[in-house]
């Protein structure tokens, strides 16, 4: 069971590696926002520092949403999804592998770049570990929940806008808990409650989302 998940991950990582240019998109998006925002609004250190938690997280949300659209697109176009369906392994497990690979491709680069981005936006240094923790807990939720929407909208062209409408409301709790955790850290308050909520959300998504994604893909396939 585990080996088939690893096989899917291996395949998708290899495919992503063969298209390295696409790999850079979310990271590039991140960096562009971080550099343009101070130029466009105000380079004032204190002002940016107060804005940074929300700004970083809104950017994360949008980067995740943009990357989500393509998660199943190729598999639909080249007929791989049908072949996965005919696999003896549970469909939800195969799909879980796809989401895991997607997170490794999009979420992990964010984890790497986010401390740098926080510094660029003058987020107080003591809040950076907390920001990092929220990204670590939050982005897998974004991938899992977003994949449900992507699975439902992959069947037809122009599903992108619909995907945003479907998924953004579900992203809001993640945004609220994550950015308030970082804000609390900036003010020197306790953050364990926010992080616990994010962790609980992650566990819930890990357990339930694969089934929802599998069922949605079956609907889209027909």
């Amino acid at each position: 069971m585990l080996s088939v998940v690893l096989t899917v991950i291996q395949r998708d990582l290899l495919l992503a590696f063969r298209r390295r240019a696409d790999l850079m998109n979310p990271v590039l998006f991140y960096v562009i926002v971080a550099t343009l925002f101070p130029l466009g609004v105000s380079p004032d250190v204190e002002f940016l520092g107060r804005l940074a938690p929300g700004l970083v997280w809104v950017t994360t949300l949008l980067a995740a949403l943009i990357s989500m659209e393509s998660i199943f697109r190729q598999d639909f176009d080249d007929g791989s999804i049908e072949q996965l369906f005919l696999s003896p392994h549970p469909f939800s497990m195969l799909v879980f592998g796809k989401v895991a690979a997607h997170w490794l491709i999009t979420g992990v680069p964010m984890l790497v770049i986010v401390p740098l981005m926080a510094l660029l936006l003058h987020l107080p240094v003591q809040a950076i570990p907390v920001l990092w923790a929220t990204i670590l807990l939050g982005t897998p939720i974004l991938s899992l929940v977003g994949a449900i929407g992507a699975a439902l909208t992959s069947g037809f062209r122009g599903g992108g806008i619909l995907l945003g409408l479907l998924v953004l409301p579900l992203y809001v709790p993640v945004l609220i808990f994550a950015s308030s955790a970082v804000s609390a850290a900036v003010d020197g308050l306790a953050v364990s409650g926010h992080l616990a909520m994010l962790g609980a959300g992650l566990i819930l998504a890990l357990v339930l989302a694969p089934f929802a994604i599998g069922a949605s893909l079956k609907i889209s396939m027909s």
Partner: peptide, 23 residues
């Protein structure tokens, strides 16, 4: 018509992954 063949994998890789995913 679409045969589940990935254009960004080599011939051998395609068959290898197909086989492993087919259990």
């Amino acid at each position: 018509h679409q045969s589940g063949v990935k254009p960004d994998l080599t011939v051998l890789e395609n068959l290898d992954f197909m086989q492993r995913l087919a259990g």
